[in-house]
Every structure is written in C-alpha cells, then in structure tokens.
Nucleic acid binder design. Structure first.
Length: 821
RNA sequence: GCCGCGAUGGCGGAAUUGGUAGACGCGCUGGACUUAAAAUCCAGUUCUAGCGAUAGAGUGAGGGUUCGAUUCCCUCUCGCGGCACCA
C-alpha cells in the first residue's frame, strides 16, 4: 500500500510552486481549449458525482499536453442567482458572504483532486470586474434593439417572489423550489432571443460533434413550425381575426374559430357580443387557473361561444361562429385558431361537446374515395353524426383534398403551397413560421444578481447607463429579502435608485431588477481566455488564438437552458464582432450522473451522499479519479460502489509494487504493453475511459503473470500512460525510477506497431456456425494451410464424419466455418 | 400523444465494416500464507445435465436476412430522458 496522503500533498504543492499548469498564447504549439461547465457553489459542498466531468476533462487535458498541445483547461464559479440567495436567506447570511465561503470550500475540494487548472485564470460571475462585461453585453443588445420592456403576464413564482423565463420552469413549477407558477402581468425586461431562433436551430447542423440527444432537445425546445396566417374578417365590421395554422389544406373543413380567452381582440368585440357577462365570467375563471390546471390534457375542453359574432372563411365565404376556449394559448401563434374538427383531435373533442358541425375535407391516401382521415378519438357515434359510417377509419391526417373548391384533388403538401399563394394574392394572409421558443424574460425581482444598467427618465424614457460608468455595482442593502411586490430589494435604497438622466441630466431612477442566473454563464468561457482585461470583454488576438472551445463537457440538464442562452449570446457577440466564430462549443459531451449506493439520487434527504474529502483521505485522489472513470461509460448514470473503488485502488497498489529492473521483459509483456499504449490514448480521446482503465489492468495482470517485474524503460511507458488518470502516484514513481522533471513535461509514448503484432493467433473452427475447436496457428496463415489443419483436427473430423461439406468459409486469422449437410 | 435513447451473468459493464458473447472490476467459492484475522497471492465462477471429457441452452419477446446476428431489417414489450391542448 502506497502512502497516498503523503504523495498527493507533495505533488500538489510541487505543481503549484512550479506553475506547471500556467498557459499563455504559445504560437509554437497547436492550442486545445477543453472546458467544464463551471460549478455553482452551493452550501453543501461537492459530492463525488460533481467532479466526474472534471476528472474526465483533466485526463483529456493531460493527455493533450503530453501530445504537444497548448491546453487551456480553466475553472471558475457561477455564483449569482436564486439558489445562492435562497441559501443565504435560510442561513441568515449576506449572499456575498455565503457565496465567498462556498467558493472557498469548492476550491479546496477541487484542489485535492489534483486538477490541471491554471488558477490565475479563475473567474467569478459575481465579481464586478467580471459582471461589468455581462452588463456591457446587455447594453450592446439594448443598442441593437434586442432588449425591450414588456408588461405582458409572465411566469411568477410566489415562493421565490420573482418572474421567471420559460426555461426556468419544470412541469409548470418553479425549477428551484417546485412552487406552482402563476401568470402575473408585470413590467419586465425581455431579450428577443426569438430573433435568433432560426439560426439557433439551423446551426445545430454545423455541430456534428455534439451529442444528438442534446441537439434534439434544443430542436424540440425551439419548436419551429411552418404554416400560414390567415385573416378571417368579422361580419359587419372592419375587424379581423388572424389565425395561425400548419394545416391550411384543411381550411374548407373549418367550422368555427377559437380565440384564447386572454386575446386582446375579445375586448374589442365587446360591443358586438350579446352574451358578454357569460364571456367575462369565463375569462375570469380561466385567469384563476394555474398553468398546470390549464394544460392538463385529461380535463374536458371548455369554452364559450361569442354570441352575435360571425367570421368569414376567406376561401369559401362561409360564415362560422367564434368561441373563446382555454385550449388555445395566447402565447403561441396569434392566440387564435381556425378549428377543423374533422382533422384535429382537439377541435374534434370540442366540437363534439358543443355539437358543432364536422366537415371532412381530407381523403385517405391509401384508399382513395373511401376512407377519410380523422382525429384519434373518433367514435362510431361521430360517424353517424357525420353520416359517413364505414368510410371512416383512424389514422394520420395527410391525404388528398375533397370538397375544397379549386383545390380539390390536390395532395395536402402541394395544396398548402398553392393556398399560401392564394392568400398572398388575395391579400388575406401569408406563409408564417412560428416557434415555441419564447423571448427571454430577463429581469428578476431579487437582490443577488447583476444590476440591469438602465435608468428610467420621465422625459427620455429608458436610458442605458453610459459604458464608462460600468460596472454598475450591486449596492449593499440592509434587507435583501424579496419584497414580492414586483420590485427588487434594490428599490429600497433611495440614494442608489435616485440618480440623474445621462441624456438630459434631469432627475431619474435606476432600474432595480437584476439579471437572471443564466446571464453570467452565457459567456464565461470567453473570459477565461483573457480574465483580467479592463479594456474589452476579451482581447481580439487572444480570442482568435483560443476560440472556439474545442470540447465542452457538462450535464445534459443544461440542454435547453444554459446551452441555448450561451449559443444565443455568442451569436450576438459574433454579430457585433467580439468573437470570430458563430458557435461557441465545437464538441459537446454529456456527463452521466453518479447516483447513491442505494440507487437513488445522492441527496442529504436519503443520507446516501458520498463526500469526496473522505474518499480522498481514505483511498486517495488517484483512486477516486480512476474509479469514476472505470465505473461505467462516461455518459451513463451509474451507482456508487465503494468496493469498486477499492478494486481500482488495488490496481494502483499493484502498479506501485511492480519490481523494476534492467532485465528484459518477456515478449508477452512487451506485446500487451504496446497494444495498451495505443488503446489507452485512443480511448481517452474517445472518452471511453472505462475500457482504457480495463486495458491498463490487463497489462498489469500480464506483468504479474510473468513474475511481477518489469524492465525500467517499459515501466516508464506504463507510468506515462497511467499518468493522466493517476497524476500523483505516477509523478512519484517517475521520480523514484530516477527520471528527470515532471512526467507531464514528457512526450506521450508512441507504440511500436511491430511489437504489437501477434505471431500466433487463435483460429476458431465452427461447423454449421457452432464453434467446435480452437486452433493455435501462425498469424497470416493462408486459407489452404489453415483449412488443412482444421480438416485434420480430431474433433472436427468427428463432426464431419458421414456428412457432405457444402461450403467452407475462411476469415483470415479469425475463423473457419464449415457448412455440412 | 410526439421525438430520442436503451434492455447482455448475482452486480457495474466489455465485444461494430456481422466472425470464440460475458474482457476488466465487484461479489461469491476454494486454496496458499497466518496462532487467528486483515492484507496479499493463486485457482474457479453465464445457466442446465455430468465425476469428467463433453453436450445442450443463452445477449428483453417473436419473426426475417445470412455459412454465421448482441451487431442488420420488421413487429412487439418494458425502462429512461426530452417535449407536450404549440393549432
């Protein structure tokens, strides 16, 4: 057993003192930028799951260094936002005090794991010198017209007492505290991320090295759908209802139109509506529903007819009724839909309930003239209603148009094209693309965030804080508890709030909302490149040298939050010339969760949290590093198992205990050694750490089978390939064998293809596909020679006895298959 | 409902241009060492039958292609993740 505590402390100090991991813009070497999603320092410190990704990138970074790359592998802390503030509130501390203390803990915990971080590049999103540039980018967006003030109802968390973006919700609940979200009208700063929707979507195709699942999540989140907007004019009025649909081809089957209850048009129709009290009552009832109640798919569809109102289908002049119903969302499309109950499940349900006409306009592709496409949930009852009985089956909705005027007979797709042309020509609509992605609600009514650098002037409106006044620092405040009134605690500091207008010099007030948690993390990877720059967000030359991030590793839970925001922010910076690449992260890998030994998520609540400090103290950082890489494929979730950890520790002890000499190694050891050199490097670059570790175990097992001793030069090679995984132990053993300098200053060993080759190979002989014998033959043996040996083999002879050979298959150095009858 | 991913021993997992299924580790069994234990080392460990050589079965289920399928195709079941009254 080696003394891991002594060795690990010693080398960590050594590395620190020699600045081994300090990097600059070395033009003589190719650069490699590998990045982890930086931690959010919580009060409970790290558990063993957190560093898994950091260990992987560290191994990768060390290998790249040894392969001659200039590697940037930085770390920092993301510390603004709700979790830190809520933690501080709970513990009756100032958020800054709490955050600083947590960062100290995190740094200590990271340092004992022996990472290659260049701590001179450490960043912290709550540092005014950092958030100066978060504010700067915000102002640039403001300048570019991407930022606006909105008074629309937004997601409101009554427990966190703040508005939230769509991305901050999970199942209609607050992602942080689980409280049901309500819709509350409130003044908000909003960023037009939707202006970038198309680029965010299309550019995913430029990222072949991103995990497909994450790209798919983003595609779902952006939710592009192509369709048309159509104006239905209101009878006896100048007013119009604009609807969005992806199925213009079904418009001849439209038998009513539905508005979202919150749609502003409803108010405009007030004078025409004869049942206003009923309508008003419904709108009020909907307002009281939570989002969750409203979007419950199992509930019955409800709605109210707007009596006295008729709209006209532009295609056929048909007059149809108008309803308001909460199954139509005001936030998507135009907040109004044309309803085609024959070909839409939701409209069908509603129409059935309110006894509205169902008109079929799409004929089945498969059985022309007979079978109609209808929504799922269709019943025989409806068949009678529609007088179509046997002609109706349940299946998809694309087909050929019937009863559709001049468009009859066209297939759905070409009908849509023709109909959009028709709409344009007749000036009553147009093609339209909609996104599920909504604009980014960017203000929080909380204390612990970057102040939004805007000044409100009665004369000049919203005026940006001049660039030279940045950073606009977060002032100290006595009570930082959220007020719940829609104002942040900053509103109570009158000498901060009251200021003068930068434009007219008149009295004005500062914006008191702060930025969301995701602001600072949207561009932090750029700051590592140039962390102390006072003149610019990042120096152009340095940016050019290091950009883009070659490899980004982190949790898949950020797919539709951080990763969308960061891509957006980066594209904006590209547009204003700050960065020279359109996509910030070239390659992306998701890290799999480490769960508790009991199979549950590690949490205080279950008492199954494994603390890395204890593991490091007992088994060493190298064992922890090696184990986390060995336990499962990198992106898979997997349960902690202390016995498994002990297993890899045994392996390290075996490496330590090998007796080194000048004697020549057996060919078996040399052969496996060179195979392992190749496999380990290939596997690390492929993020297949588990098989890399297993390959090294096989090598060491071979060494022990051959007597447990190894030639010094060969032992040095073993240390070099193990070094990225177990940096402390290998550095120590490297010194022990008398090698000069740090093992990480050496060039990663090259394998010798000649020594890797096997002289003898096992060729399996199967009869009718079943393995019957193994032959040990010289590598590269000819088909003829191998077949002769096989046919003379006693076991094979027995199987072939009395049978006719139909076919003989030969795969060089692998197998022979004899087919008999 | 839609989209994506997955299912291999007691457990984590390995095996891809289709070619010995179960590498490596854990666990378990036996042995050596020890007064004893731990540690270490050695041997065994998919299941069934057999003392054994060996034979049969076997990668979620069923079917197909093939000399040969964990791997390719079809149908289904279960599990995980994402999206979801998005028109």
């Amino acid at each position: 057993m080696y003394d891991h505590q002594r060795i690990e402390t010693k080398w960590q100090k050594e590395w620190r003192d020699s600045h081994l991991y300090r990097v600059g813009e070395d033009q003589t070497k190719p650069k490699y930028y590998i990045l982890d999603m930086f931690p959010y320092p919580s009060g409970t410190g790290l558990h063993v799951g957190h560093p898994k990704g950091y260990i992987a990138t560290d191994i990768f970074a060390r290998l790249k260094m040894m392969q001659g790359f200039n590697v940037l592998h930085p770390i920092g802390f993301d510390a603004f936002g709700l979790p830190a503030e809520n933690y501080a509130l709970q513990n009756k501390m100032h958020p800054k005090t709490a955050t600083d203390a947590n960062i100290v803990t995190y740094k200590r915990q990271l340092e004992i794991l022996g990472f290659t971080y260049d701590w001179e590049r450490e960043i912290n999103t709550t540092d005014p010198e950092y958030y100066k540039w978060t504010q700067w980018a915000f102002l640039k967006m403001f300048e570019a017209g991407l930022v606006f003030e909105s008074y629309e109802p937004i997601n409101w968390c009554s427990s966190c007492k703040t508005g939230l973006a769509n991305e901050d919700l999970e199942d209609g609940k607050c992602e942080r505290c689980g409280t049901l979200i309500e819709q509350k009208p409130m003044r908000q700063w909003v960023i037009k991320i939707t202006d970038y929707a198309d680029r965010l979507l299309n550019d995913l195709d430029k990222l072949p090295d991103w995990e497909e699942s994450i790209k798919e999540m983003q595609r779902n989140w952006i939710g592009k759908s192509e369709g048309a907007e159509i104006n239905f004019s209101v009878k006896d009025s100048e007013l119009k209802i604009k609807v969005f649909t992806t199925r213009v081809d079904t418009i001849f089957g439209c038998t009513y139109v539905v508005l979202a209850p919150e749609n502003k048009l409803v108010e405009e129709f007030k004078t025409k509506i004869t049942n206003w009290s009923q309508v008003a009552e419904y709108i009020a009832a909907v307002k009281n529903k939570t989002n969750l109640e409203r979007t419950d798919l199992n509930k019955d569809k409800t709605g109210v007819k707007l009596e006295g109102l008729k709209v006209i289908n532009p295609f056929n002049g048909t007059e149809v009724d108008v309803f308001i119903a909460d199954y139509v969302l005001n936030s998507y499309g135009t907040g109004a839909v044309m309803a085609v109950p024959a070909h839409d499940e939701r409209d069908f349900e509603f129409a059935k309930k309110y006894n509205i006409e169902i008109k079929f306009v799409i004929e089945s592709k498969e059985k022309k003239g007979f079978i109609y496409s209808v929504p799922n949930g269709f019943s025989k009852e409806l068949a009678r209603h529609a007088e179509l009985n046997d002609k109706i089956i349940l299946h998809g909705q694309e087909g050929f148009l019937i009863d559709s005027g001049e468009f009859t007979g066209l297939d759905s797709a070409s009908a849509r094209t023709k109909m959009v042309e028709w709409l344009k020509k007749n000036n009553c609509g147009n093609g339209k693309i909609n996104y599920k992605l909504q604009d980014w609600v960017f203000s929080r009514q909380r204390y612990w965030g970057e102040p939004i650098p805007i000044i409100h002037c009665n004369k000049c409106g919203a005026v940006p804080v001049p660039y030279e006044q940045l950073p606009l620092t977060l002032p100290d405040v006595k009570s930082y508890e959220p007020s719940g009134t829609g104002e942040s605690p900053l509103a109570t500091i009158s000498d901060w709030v009251n200021t003068t207008c930068p434009k007219c010099g008149g009295p004005a007030k500062r914006e008191t909302n702060t930025m969301p948690q995701w602001a600072g993390s949207s561009w932090y990877y750029l700051r590592y490149i140039d962390p102390k720059n006072n003149e610019a967000l990042v120096n152009k030359q340095k940016e050019k040298y290091w950009s883009p991030v070659d490899f980004y590793v982190g949790g898949a839970e950020h797919a539709t939050r951080h990763l969308i925001y960061a891509r957006f922010w980066h594209k904006f910076l590209f547009d204003i010339g700050v960065v020279n690449y359109e996509e910030p992260f070239q390659k992306l890998k998701a890290v799999g969760l480490i769960i508790g030994e009991d199979g549950r998520k590690m949490s205080k609540r279950w008492g199954n949290v494994i603390n890395p400090d204890e593991v490091v103290a007992k088994y060493g950082a190298d064992a922890l590093r090696l184990y986390e890489m060995f336990m499962s494929p990198f992106s898979d979730a997997s349960a902690w198992n202390t016995n498994g950890l002990i297993g890899v520790r045994k392996f390290l002890d075996r490496v330590y205990n090998i007796s080194v000499s000048e004697e020549i190694d057996s060919p078996a050891v040399v052969n496996v050694l060179h195979k392992t050199i190749k496999k380990v490097a290939d596997d690390i670059l492929d993020f297949k750490f588990n098989t890399a570790v297993s390959a090294m175990m096989i090598l060491v097992n071979t060494v022990y089978e051959q007597g447990g001793k190894m030639n010094k030069a060969n032992y040095a090679l073993l240390l070099q390939i193990l070094a990225p995984f177990a940096p402390h132990l290998t550095e120590e053993l490297w010194a022990n064998i008398g090698a000069k300098g740090s093992i990480f200053a050496t060039i990663y060993p090259a394998y010798n293809p000649e020594l890797m080759k096997d002289s003898m190979v096992t060729v399996v002989v199967s009869v009718n596909g079943k393995v019957r014998a193994n032959l040990n033959l010289p590598a590269g043996i000819s088909e003829e020679a191998a077949m002769t040996v096989a046919l003379e083999n006693d076991i094979i002879k027995k199987w072939l006895d009395g049978k006719t050979i139909i076919k003989k298959i030969f795969v060089p150095d692998k197998l022979i298959n004899i087919v008999i009858k």
